[in-house]
């Protein structure tokens, strides 16, 4: 599971460099998110721009990543492709996460 991260002020942007977050990689995703966010100081923005498919296990892994960050560090999302956005809307998880149209928009706030 290829994740990379970059610090911008008080925001850590974690980019998923994979086209799919599914049941075959959900546990690796959760573990890699823990590693990438270990030193986090403020909020985390998860850039999903390269992801074109997510299943309910992948969704569960993103929820788990938010929970393991704890209440003091928010996990926000950016750049959801059509099919990824659909899964968040159907499960109403779009009401749980703050979702930005781009990383640039997320950083401007």
């Amino acid at each position: 599971m290829d994740l990379s991260s970059q610090v911008n002020g008080d925001t850590l942007v974690v980019t998923v460099n994979e086209p799919r977050i599914d049941a075959s990689v959900a546990i690796q995703f959760k573990d890699r998110m823990r590693e990438e966010t270990e030193q986090v100081a403020g909020r985390v923005v998860l850039d999903l721009g390269k992801v074109d498919f997510i299943d309910s296990s992948g969704l569960g892994a993103i929820v788990a990543a938010m929970k393991q960050l704890g209440a003091q560090h928010r996990l926000e999302l950016s750049d959801l492709n059509e099919n990824v956005d659909k899964v968040f809307r159907l499960t109403r998880m779009d009401t749980v996460f703050r979702i930005h149209t781009s990383v640039g928009e997320a950083l401007a706030q």
Partner: peptide, 8 residues
């Protein structure tokens, strides 16, 4: 308490 499964 957010659910991590049961969405399928």
């Amino acid at each position: 308490d957010l659910p991590e499964g049961g969405f399928g």
